[in-house]
Design a protein around this nucleic acid. Structure first.
Length: 890
RNA sequence: GGGCAAUUAGCUCAGUUGGUUAGAGCGCCUCGUUUACACCGAGGAAGUCGGAGGUUCGAGUCCUCCAUUGCCCACCA
């Protein structure tokens, strides 16, 4: 092959679609296929991750591209490491979001509303839209090179997920955690549906705060920004210590035709929640039209009234009802407000008006200011205690514990605080929506009878609840509904749940992450994932949010069309850290595009030089040795960064090495020294290290220049150098070794293998419950049988209740078990342990020299010197332990 | 009101248990176009690490206060 035959620049367009097609056809995105083909060892640990399902509302944006880039990088890395790697894709029907979108389109294009269709017709239109969206989204996911297993693709509204949803609903209903209750909800008049607290978007606006009295002889003035709701007041609350009002507490005042409206009966109550310094220090309580007032009602049920069913003064159409009195009935809220004020002013009851800043909740989807109304809706009770594993807990507590116990780690961890704060303020979750698109509530009515079931009840006359479920109910089940649940015997469920990682934007921590934790903890008794990686928002070059109105939206497809998917992926990953927003600029993308081209041209030089390709790579010069040593260091470091999800750091180091050391320096050296085999070998390693980040260009180079004979770079073995094992001493593995030692020490007189194994696995980052699930072997009998089968241990008395076996055998037992489970490789473990020992000894030596340095020993305070001495002793002790353990492995 | 983050070169940002001389990309300046790459190479200028204190032998890194910006949550009677 000659250089002149190969284009001088990498042309992504000519490669990407074809490569993706070939990857898909190979089937290697499917872990089962990898095992069949011998690419993956079935005994290896699993690495599973679900794709946060994009909404079928349209197209993917830059944020999705970032998500796909990060996840694909991690997934490809694990696949190359040899893990049983599953990345499960899907889409979300996104209930309200999709319906409101389609309603907009229908209105714009046909001037029709949903009421111009039957429920069935309307749903058919939605399904068509959803399918088209789905196809577009799938295409975009593919364009970015995402190595998802399409054979397992799921949709939140498909048959299997529907079964999961109905099963989940029924189970919670039977357990009394789902209830139908009458209380205040957020109501979008425009959307004619409820929305949950989390779906509200608060906007700031100016409002008039009016101070008034209900009547001339009413003793207390109150202030409000919502005078029209005052037509439904039932109480006035004051602080219990407020001297001004103490004498009135407990009295009830009858107001005849308040503001020309209904008669009111106002009770004066005392409540700690009232801020005596704000306004007049007294609050008018409208339990029907304010969540906080409803809470007042709950605390004072004995004293004050809540509007009985359907007696709210504001109706679902956003107009005043007849309960607001004849003078108001039918008026809009705004008109009613003006009328109340006018009436109060005329009667001389209006004492003061001022303009204040106010933030009001609007519907995320329908954009209108929501009204708080009392309605009969379905809720999930987050506070109700129920029995779980022999103790009383609430859903709230389950959600809290999943994170506080460390079962789930959130990256960056500062979001754990946000999460706890959210949980502490959580109200019951309103799950019913008055829209048509979604999972219909599996409840049927016949007269007074009510039936909740997975399928419709037998017999005539039953009518199903008209409402559908909040979209987050079904996405909350996502980690396990996609793996076969409610069939808990399903292979995928048993193999891949809990998943290892959830990668998503921090903006849906509450919506989705928290709901998944709730559902998984409740139904499975385990967290849905071990780790949460929260990425930031993708912003434009100036740091602004991308939005249609600003016209600054960067379409990922456009970018990858021009510069290639790899350049886009790199631009999104490089320089971005968990939890922080990332700015995407043209310059950055171009810089990354230039780098893909750099790799391409390296390949042109290396791949086409005359070389006996079969020659073994032998370092011949100092330059050779330097580049190999550096390469090993970089490989180890990139590996460590990937294990810690530090993708940006990995790309930086790798890029510096590739461009600075390898391309600019070593290639020039090679032009003189001509160590072809070593050059090719080094480049091959570099390509593998780059593959997870830039799958297309690396695979294209692999396919063009055949640096080795394998079919696909995507299933190549991840480069690990024996001599650099000590540098791959990542936290995970270090903890494993530590845990192993602890476990061995803790094997006590009574012989129980379980705690020891648990300890080791938990040191490895798995939660206790995960261990219970993933290793359902509880009796020693079974463990020993399995171990005996692989012949690692020869003589074990399986009926032993007391220690008939030496400590050594128990150590061996433990190791053998771990080996069997694919958790550790003993030979490698020993090498790693030795590396650890070397590092520990090195550390001890450095501490020694520090103590020997007069600058430190004489000038540093005694305590520091002492603590350093202590540290040295500890380090020596640790080295001793390690040495012992290495010996026990020999 | 409560909380969280950010502030490092002209711009965009790295900098993970405190440790020699603080890094990268883009931009800028000088030089270079004999076949891997001008989507390039060699070299260079450029930072009192937001401000003020403090802890320390040693602080971009830890503590306190302040300033500016952004975000989240709650209240908003």
């Amino acid at each position: 092959m000659n250089e002149t035959d190969i284009p001088k620049a990498y042309t992504p367009k000519e490669w990407e679609d074809d490569l993706y097609r070939r990857w898909t056809e190979s089937g290697f995105f499917d872990p089962d296929r990898c095992i069949e083909a011998g690419v993956t060892d079935a005994t290896k640990p699993t690495f599973s991750i679900v794709l946060p399902p994009p909404n079928v509302t349209g197209v993917l944006h830059a944020g999705h591209a970032a998500m796909l880039a990060i996840e694909d990088t991690i997934v490809r890395y694990h696949r190359m490491r040899g893990d049983r790697t599953l990345w499960l894709p899907g889409t979300d029907h996104a209930a309200v979001a999709t319906q409101s979108k389609v309603e907009d389109i229908l209105w714009q294009e046909e001037k029709k509303t949903r009421y111009d269709f039957s429920r069935e017709e309307f749903l058919a239109r939605l399904e068509t839209f959803a399918r088209e969206s789905h196809d577009r989204i799938k295409h975009q996911i593919e364009k970015l090179g995402s190595s998802v297993d399409w054979s397992r693709e799921a949709y939140t509204l498909d048959e299997k997920r529907s079964l999961a949803v109905r099963t989940a609903f029924k189970r919670m209903y039977d357990d009394g955690l789902i209830y139908r209750g009458y209380r205040t909800v957020n109501w979008s008049v425009k959307g004619q549906s409820t929305c949950s607290d989390d779906e509200l978007v608060y906007i700031d606006r100016k409002a008039t705060l009016s101070t008034f009295r209900y009547s001339e002889d009413f003793p207390i003035a109150i202030a409000t920004t919502r005078p029209e709701t005052k037509l439904g007041d039932t109480a006035v609350a004051v602080h219990p210590d407020d001297e001004r009002y103490r004498e009135f507490v407990g009295k009830t005042y009858e107001i005849g035709s308040f503001a020309g409206g209904p008669n009111l009966s106002i009770r004066i109550i005392a409540d700690e929640m009232v801020d005596p310094a704000f306004g007049t220090g007294a609050v008018g309580i409208t339990p029907a039209h304010s969540h906080t007032d409803y809470d007042f009602y709950l605390r004072h049920k004995a004293e004050i009234a809540f509007a009985p069913a359907d007696e709210a003064v504001i109706g679902t159409d956003g107009a005043m009802t007849r309960w607001a009195g004849d003078a108001y009935a039918g008026l809009s809220v705004a008109d009613a407000r003006a009328k109340v004020i006018a009436s109060l002013r005329a009667a001389g009851l209006l004492e003061h008006e001022e303009e204040v800043d106010q933030s009001v909740g609007t519907s995320d989807r329908f954009k209108d200011v929501v009204e708080v109304l009392p309605m009969k809706q379905w809720f999930i009770d987050v506070n109700k205690e129920f029995e779980k594993n022999g103790r009383q807990v609430s859903l709230k507590e389950l959600m809290r514990e999943a994170v506080s116990s460390g079962d789930i780690a959130i990256l960056p961890d500062r979001f754990a605080k946000t999460y706890f704060h959210w949980i502490d303020n959580l109200r019951d979750w309103c799950i019913s929506r008055q829209i048509w698109f979604g999972h219909r509530i599996p409840v049927w009515y016949r007269g007074e009878e009510i039936f909740c079931g997975i399928d419709a009840p037998q017999g005539d006359g039953w009518e199903q609840d008209q409402d559908t479920l909040d979209t987050w109910f079904s996405s909350g089940l996502w980690t396990f509904s996609t793996l076969g649940w409610p069939d808990t015997e399903a292979n995928d469920f048993k193999t891949y749940h809990p998943t290892n990682l959830l990668e998503t934007g921090y903006d849906i921590l509450f919506f989705w992450v928290a709901r998944m934790i709730l559902m998984s903890e409740y139904f499975i008794g385990m967290p849905p994932f071990e780790k949460v990686y929260l990425h930031g928002l993708v912003r434009d070059a100036e740091g602004r949010k991308m939005s249609k109105s600003l016209g600054n939206i960067i379409d990922p497809l456009d970018v990858s069309e021009v510069h290639g998917a790899d350049a886009l992926r790199m631009a999104l990953i490089s320089g971005s850290t968990p939890g922080n927003d990332v700015k995407l600029s043209d310059e950055k993308i171009v810089a990354m595009r230039n780098f893909t081209n750099k790799l391409w041209n390296l390949a042109r030089y290396i791949g086409t030089m005359s070389a006996e390709t079969d020659a073994a790579p032998e370092p011949r010069s100092d330059a050779d040795r330097y580049i190999m040593r550096k390469l090993e260091e970089v490989a180890a470091s990139v590996t460590r960064h990937l294990d810690r999800y530090e993708l940006s750091l990995a790309t930086e180091e790798l890029r510096d090495f590739t461009w600075g050391d390898f391309a600019d320096w070593y290639v020039e050296v090679h032009k003189i020294e001509k160590n072809d085999a070593l050059l090719r070998h080094a480049f091959d390693v570099i390509l593998k290290l780059w593959h997870p980040f830039m799958p297309f260009v690396t695979e294209a180079i692999h396919q063009t220049f055949h640096l080795d004979k394998s079919e696909f770079l995507m299933i190549a073995k991840w480069p690990v150098f024996e001599s650099t094992h000590k540098m791959i001493a990542d936290a995970n593995r270090f903890e494993l070794v530590k845990g192993l030692i602890t476990a061995i020490r803790n094997i006590r007189a009574t012989y129980h293998i379980d705690p020891a194994i648990k300890m080791v696995l938990s040191a490895r980052g798995a939660s206790e419950r995960t261990i219970r699930h993933k290793n359902t072997i509880h009796d020693n009998e079974e463990i020993i049988k399995r171990i005996a089968r692989i012949g690692e241990i020869r003589s074990i008395d399986s009926s032993a209740d007391t220690p008939k076996n030496s400590l050594l055998i128990q150590v061996g037992l433990l190791q053998a078990f771990l080996h069997l489970e694919g958790v550790i490789d003993i030979a490698k473990e020993k090498a790693r342990l030795e590396a650890d020992l070397a590092q520990t000894e090195k550390y001890a030596a450095s501490l020694e020299s520090k103590l020997g340095n007069p600058a430190f020993a004489d000038r540093a305070p005694k305590e520091i010197v002492e603590s350093t001495k202590t540290l040295l002793e500890e380090t020596r002790a640790k080295a001793g332990e390690l040495r012992e353990h290495v010996a026990s492995l020999s």
